[in-house]
Write a protein that binds this DNA or RNA. Structure first.
Lengths: 123, 123
DNA sequence: TTTAATACATAAGAAAATTTGGCATATAGA
DNA sequence: TCTATATGCCAAATTTTCTTATGTATTAAA
């Protein structure tokens, strides 16, 4: 059985901050790429963040299933090199949801930065 | 009885993204301000983010208690205008923890931005 | 005197991710 | 050939964390 917990090479703390952002990250990636499969998403995030962020499969797949159940994502299966892949892409309504989720996340990030960059107050 | 749920004027979505960041936000504010009390923290965040982020008391107070129990924060009570205030400040070890937590959060924000700003891939 | 603001606190429940396990195929190395 | 690694999907139990809903109490303004 293969060793799975690659996570420990990442910052434990940053993983904590992921809470709540996972759906938005998935939606953003699916706006940038027409279709992606689960494993590909985990690798993409790892690549973009130079290994600093690692989506766990235990978190990702339930999220994908939930988004599909909500009608935000649709799927199509394909067999590649003898291995199954399940591609996800945004539905029509999914595109709208993705845009609003991503813009809200961007706003949140901007608010976080305001807090982090805050100069010491006098008093 | 006073009306409590001021939260509905904020973005529900952004509140979701808060998950996991609350402690780090508190620690950052306490690095910028020698001491703060709970209610003050909620108002400070509201002020900094122009009302876009609202820390709920139900989330904040347990977090403050947890950080105190961990030895990150210490408290002192004071009576102001007939009302009790519980001031929190960073302990010595708290300062170190605050620094690492905040820098990790900053890294996380930077990673999020990489994901959000990602240009569409070819293919 | 009722409402709103200030100020603390707790408890039940939901939401979301983690942990930990499972299944299966392909490939490279010892 | 045996093993580890990489690829690819999934689910259940648990834990963490926040939301929602209260409770208590003082001050001030309408």
């Amino acid at each position: 059985m293969a060793y799975r917990n690659v996570m420990y090479i990442c910052s434990m703390q940053q993983q904590t901050y992921l809470k709540g952002c996972l759906s938005a990250i998935v939606l953003q990636l699916l706006q940038d790429n027409k279709r992606m499969y689960g494993y590909e998403i985990t690798q993409k995030v790892r690549e973009i963040t130079a290994g600093e962020l690692q989506l766990t499969e235990g978190a990702l797949y339930p999220t994908l299933h939930k988004l599909e159940a909500e009608g935000v994502l649709s799927t199509e299966n394909s067999l590649v090199d003898g291995r199954n892949r399940k591609y996800y892409k945004l539905t029509e309504t999914g595109h709208q949801q993705a845009q609003s989720a991503v813009s809200e996340l961007a706003d949140f990030v901007s608010n976080l930065q305001k807090i982090l960059n805050l100069k010491p107050s006098l008093g």
